[in-house]
Simulated scan of single mutants.
Amino acid sequence: MMLETILDALFPDGHDVRLDGKTITGEAATPLGTVAVLGTADAAAMDHAIALGLSAFILETVARHPGRPFVYLVDTSGQALSRSEELLCLNGSLAHLAECVDLARRRGHPSLSLVTANAVSGGFLSYGLMADRVFALKDVQVRVMDLRAMSRVTRIEHEKLVELAGHSPIFAPGAENYLRMGAIEAVWDEPSASRLVDALTSLQRGVAAGDHRMKLGCGRGGRMLAEPVALSVQAAGGGV
C-alpha cells in the first residue's frame, strides 16, 4: 500500500508529512489534536542518516511541543548491512534513537506505532517496538531474526528451529505470532482514522498504567513465563 494512501486514511483532517528518501517526518491533525508522525518507508534499511534524522525530529518535538503524541509508521528491512555502517558504529546510532524514544515517553509523550509493511530486526527494535502500543496492518512481515540467522547465532539446527516455530510464537515470524506474544496490541484490516483515534484515546487514558505486554502475552497463550517470573522477582524485592 502506498504511503500517501495510508496517510490519507489515517489523517483525513489533513497532514503535513514529508518523505525525504525513506525517512518520514511531519505532523497531522486528529480530533484529539496534532500528532507528530515519523518513521520509515519502502522497506528502508536503517542507517546512520535515518536513525539520526528520526532522533533529531523526536528531540525537536519534545522541546517545542510538550506532550504531543507520536505516531510511528514502520516499514523497515532492518539495520543497514554494510561494513562502513558497522565501522561507524551503527549500533550507537540505533541506541541513540531508542534513547530518544524513551526520553519522549518519560517526558509525557504517548506513542503508538503502526507496522505498514515490514518490521525487521534492529530497524524495528530501535523505535517501532519501543512505542507504548504497537499495531500492525494485516499481511505485514514482522520478525526480529530470520530462522537461519538465529540458527547461526544459537548453534541450534535450522530444522529444529522450524519445528519449534510450528508450535511456539516466540520462534516464529509474522504479525499474528507477535500478537499472541503481546508485542502487538491488535492487527488492523486497513489503515483507519477511527481506529487510530480510539487507540490514541485509550493510550492517553491508560499510559500511566504502564506496559501490559507481558500480561497480554500470557493471556493470549504466546508468552507464558514472562509475567509470572517478573511477578516472582518483584515479590522477592528485585523489581521488574
Rank of each mutant, 00 (worst) to 15 (best):
H96S: 13
N91G: 08
D102R: 15
L87N: 03
S93P: 02
R105Y: 02
R106G: 00
S84N: 06
P110E: 14
R107T: 02
G92R: 10
E99W: 03
H96K: 14
L88P: 00
R106I: 05
G108M: 00
R106A: 07
G92N: 05
L90E: 00
R107V: 06
R105H: 03
R106S: 07
S113Q: 09
G108S: 07
L97W: 02
L114F: 10
E99L: 08
R83Y: 12
R83W: 04
D102W: 13
E85R: 15
L97N: 00
R107C: 05
L112P: 01
G92M: 06
P110V: 03
L114V: 14
G108K: 02
L103C: 03
A95H: 06
C100M: 14
L94V: 15
A98N: 04
E99F: 07
C89G: 04
A95L: 10
C100L: 08
S82Y: 03
P110A: 06
L88Y: 10
R105I: 01
L112F: 00
L94H: 01
H109Y: 06
E99C: 06
G92W: 14
L90I: 08
L88K: 11
N91V: 07
G108D: 01
S82G: 03
V101E: 10
E86T: 12
S111M: 02
R83T: 13
R107K: 06
R83F: 08
R105D: 09
L88Q: 14
A98H: 05
V101H: 03
R105E: 11
R105G: 09
L103T: 05
L87D: 14
S111E: 03
A98D: 09
L112W: 00
R105Q: 04
S111N: 01
H109T: 09
H96A: 05
E86S: 09
H96Q: 05
G92P: 04
S93I: 02
L94D: 02
R83N: 13
S84M: 04
S111H: 01
A104G: 13
L103Y: 09
S111A: 08
E85N: 13
E86C: 03
H96V: 04
L94K: 05
L90S: 06
C89A: 05
R83L: 02
R83K: 15
N91R: 15
L114K: 00
C89D: 10
L97H: 03
H96Y: 15
S113D: 09
N91C: 12
L114Y: 00
S111I: 00
C100H: 11
R105N: 12
S82A: 06
E99S: 12
N91D: 07
S82P: 06
L87R: 15
S93Y: 11
L88M: 07
L97M: 06
A98V: 12
S111W: 05
G92L: 14
A95V: 04
L81C: 11
E85F: 11
S84Q: 15
L81M: 10
L87E: 14
L114H: 01
S82V: 04
R83I: 13
N91H: 14
L103R: 08
E86W: 10
L81H: 11
L90G: 00
H109C: 03
E86H: 15
L97C: 05
S82E: 09
A98C: 11
A104K: 11
H96P: 04
A95W: 06
L88V: 07
A98I: 02
D102V: 11
H96D: 06
L81F: 11
S93L: 01
R83D: 08
E99Y: 08
